[in-house]
């Protein structure tokens, strides 16, 4: 707008400095995780706070992968997280579509109930949940985790999906219905392709939430076979010592699927897929 007003180089430098500080602050824990993972055990305490260790080793990774149950935890977590993300997203997409497009009796009540469920601290309901799961005979099973995670994530995921559906003009479906689609065909051929970013975001969010969940997993799972990854991490803590190196190595490995998952879905997260639908 104002050609006379030039951005001062100091302001630019200040902006980048602030950004750099923020990035460093946010990424430091991750760096520290990776650093400890590659530091030989003997140096962890002696070199303590040095930013870069004097020697590197992949021994911790080797131990974690070959001599612990890490691979089993990892597989369990993958099953639970993928299962939760898939089921939750499917239900949330259907519910979100209904909230976005239809008016039905009790709609406000259901929305209110879903909001209320989000207000309680999880600690309060752990005991009843344990009781229910125990009665059903599902303790120590991955199924119980998938059910519980799905139940807890559906409200948020539904609101998320509803907002994505709200962003798709109703005209598009109506045009499709006039062009010869049934409502379901219009949903499948027109709305669904446009909702892929929304589905991607929801999948990613739920996957991450389930991947890192500890509280319920700790309560509902005792047997080593069914342990998920966050619970498994605790096995590196023994009564007298903590195996920091191995724990951190396991942590680094745990980041891999999350990263892969987001790389996979990030192309669906690209916004602006609906531009051009309605007037420009």
């Amino acid at each position: 707008m104002n050609a006379l007003r030039q951005t001062s180089p100091w302001a630019v430098a200040g902006k980048y400095l602030a950004l750099a500080l923020y990035v460093a602050f946010a990424l430091f824990p991750l760096y520290w995780l990776a650093k400890i993972a590659v530091t030989p055990d003997k140096l962890i305490f002696s070199e303590g706070t040095a930013l870069v260790p004097s020697r590197f080793t992949f021994e911790n990774f080797q131990t974690v992968l070959l001599q612990t149950d890490f691979v089993a935890y990892f597989r369990n977590s993958l099953i639970v997280s993928l299962g939760t993300a898939a089921i939750t997203t499917m239900i949330a997409a259907a519910a979100g579509y209904a909230f976005s497009r239809f008016d039905f009796r009790g709609k406000r009540l259901i929305i209110a109930l879903m909001l209320i469920t989000q207000m309680f601290p999880l600690l309060m309901i752990i005991a009843p949940i344990y009781k229910i799961v125990a009665t059903l005979g599902l303790l120590n099973s991955l199924t119980s985790l998938i059910i519980v995670y799905t139940a807890f994530n559906i409200p948020f995921a539904t609101f998320l999906m509803q907002s994505f559906f709200d962003g798709i003009p109703k005209d598009l479906e109506e045009a499709g219905m006039i062009d010869g689609c049934t409502r379901f065909e219009a949903l499948r051929k027109i709305v669904l392709p446009l909702t892929l970013p929304g589905l991607g975001a929801t999948l990613g969010f739920i996957f991450t939430a389930a991947w890192s969940e500890l509280l319920f997993a700790l309560m509902l799972i005792n047997s080593n076979d069914a342990m998920t990854f966050p619970v498994g991490l605790l096995t590196f803590v023994s009564k007298f010592s903590v195996d920091w190196g191995q724990m951190m190595a396991a942590g680094v490995l745990a980041l891999v699927p999350s990263c892969l998952f987001f790389i996979f879905i990030q192309r669906y997260l690209v916004q602006g897929l609906t531009t051009g639908a309605v007037k420009g």
């Binding site: 003009p169 109506e174 045009a175 499709g176 392709p193 639908a277 309605v278």
Partner: peptide
């Protein structure tokens, strides 16, 4: 029907 918003399928 021709819609006011055109309602073209963006994909």
């Amino acid at each position: 029907m021709v819609f006011q918003s055109y309602a073209l399928y963006p994909h």
